[in-house]
């Protein structure tokens, strides 16, 4: 049996998204495809799979990304979904934890890659906001557009701050343990 669910997650919520997918798998719904906000599930044995989400170095179709995917396949890890640089991976649940990295340094590098994307979005939104403010100064009827852009800008900035918080927590751990 198949079902489709729609869910919006922000860039800083990949841990929560992963928990959500693993909870679904525990309930007998295995993710078989993911694209942006669309998730396709198939029924499976409860707890048959465990999932991991990763922000990879290459987008779909690049050698870098294909190399990574085939390496994962060699290690019995299957890529079930791709969206931009996000990859959705699963393996059969053998009772061992499903980790992608052994060190906090690698986890930090992973968060920093996502943070880099978020910082580009912050700059873009700041430019949009500035343009909208200029537009409103010339034409009062542009105010609703400005409010919308301001709301999105606040959300993007919050996402960036969320990622920054994750990175700072990992840096503290690195100082203590590695």
């Amino acid at each position: 049996m198949r079902k489709v669910e729609w869910h919006f997650w922000t860039l800083d919520q990949y841990n929560e998204e992963e928990q959500w997918l693993n909870k679904k798998a525990e309930e007998g719904w295995a993710l078989v495809d993911a694209f942006a906000v669309r998730y396709v599930f198939e029924s499976c044995e409860p707890g048959e799979y465990v999932y991991k989400i990763l922000f990879t170095d290459g987008v779909k179709g690049t050698d870098e990304r294909d190399d990574f995917t085939s390496f994962m396949n060699e290690n019995d890890i299957e890529e079930v979904g791709r969206y931009h640089r996000w990859g959705y991976y699963r393996k059969k649940n053998d009772g061992t934890p499903f980790e992608m990295f052994n060190s906090k340094k690698e986890e930090l590098a992973h968060v920093n890659k996502i943070k880099q994307l978020a910082s580009v979005l912050v700059v873009l939104m700041a430019l949009c906001l500035f343009t909208e403010i200029m537009a409103v100064l010339h034409n009062r009827f542009m105010l609703p557009a400005l409010i919308m852009v301001a709301a999105v800008s606040v959300m993007v900035f919050k996402v960036y701050k969320g990622l920054d918080k994750k990175a700072k927590e990992l840096e503290k751990d690195i100082n203590l343990f590695e």
Binding site: F71, M72, N75, T96, E99, E106
Partner: peptide
């Protein structure tokens, strides 16, 4: 004691 994670192994091999 040490179970290499696939992402770590991939990065190291690369």
């Amino acid at each position: 004691r040490l179970v290499l994670a696939a992402g770590t192994l991939y990065g190291a091999i690369t």
